Simulated scan of single mutants.
Amino acid sequence: MFRSATFAVLAGATTLTAPFATVALAAGPYAGTADNFPPSVIAMSQKPKGGDVSITYANLPEKGTLAIFEGDGKGRMGKTRVGKVALDAGDHRNIKVQLSPMPRNGTRLYAVLEQPNGKPFKNQRTSYDRSFKVL
């Protein structure tokens, strides 16, 4: 839906009318949930500090877990969980996750957002995860 807004230009008596879009931010399975945004996670390649990695950003529509899995060496997420932290619903930044055992340098890790039942949050067939490397 487009609407118009009128803005007064301070330098003179001119007015400007510009259309702008009204967008529904929360359509789909996560409408009406924490901050009305779907699950999302951002992770950067990094050198662990004190056995921890720092996940840049995570948003969960409900209480859940941020889990870290090792890669399988073939470009896919493996089954070995090396860390996890429980999170409340909502927006989280710079989340510290303790790793055990500590992966070797160059190992690809996957940050995965899981529901309270332990299954990954999914959008159709794709889970909400992000890969990064241990430097």
Rank of each mutant, 00 (worst) to 15 (best):
I68C: 09
M77C: 10
V97L: 00
A86P: 02
T80M: 11
I68R: 03
N105F: 13
K63R: 07
T80K: 07
K96M: 06
K79S: 15
D72M: 08
G83S: 12
G71T: 08
L99W: 01
D72F: 01
I68Q: 04
R76Q: 10
G90N: 13
R76P: 05
G64C: 03
A86D: 07
M102Y: 10
Q98A: 04
I68F: 03
L66K: 00
N105V: 14
D91C: 07
S100K: 10
L99A: 06
P101A: 03
S100G: 06
I95K: 01
D91N: 10
R81F: 11
P61D: 06
V82P: 01
D72K: 02
G75W: 12
K79H: 15
I68L: 08
P103A: 12
I68M: 09
S100C: 12
I95G: 01
A86V: 07
F69H: 07
G73Y: 09
V97F: 00
G64M: 02
N105S: 13
L87D: 00
S100F: 07
T65I: 06
Q98F: 02
T80W: 08
K96P: 01
G83L: 05
P101L: 02
K84Q: 09
E62I: 03
G75S: 08
G75H: 09
L99K: 06
D91L: 13
R76G: 14
K79Y: 15
N94K: 12
K96H: 01
L87R: 00
A89P: 07
K96A: 08
R81W: 13
S100R: 03
V85E: 00
G78E: 11
L99P: 04
P61M: 05
V85W: 01
E70R: 06
E70T: 10
F69Q: 06
G64Y: 01
K84Y: 04
E70M: 11
R81C: 12
I68Y: 01
R76S: 13
G83P: 11
G83R: 02
K79A: 14
R93L: 10
M77E: 13
L66R: 01
G71M: 10
G83D: 00
I68N: 00
R76F: 09
N94C: 05
G64D: 02
P61A: 10
E70S: 06
A67D: 07
K74S: 09
D88H: 12
T80L: 15
G64L: 02
I68K: 07
R93I: 03
V82C: 14
T80Q: 06
R81M: 15
D91M: 14
H92C: 12
D88P: 05
G75D: 05
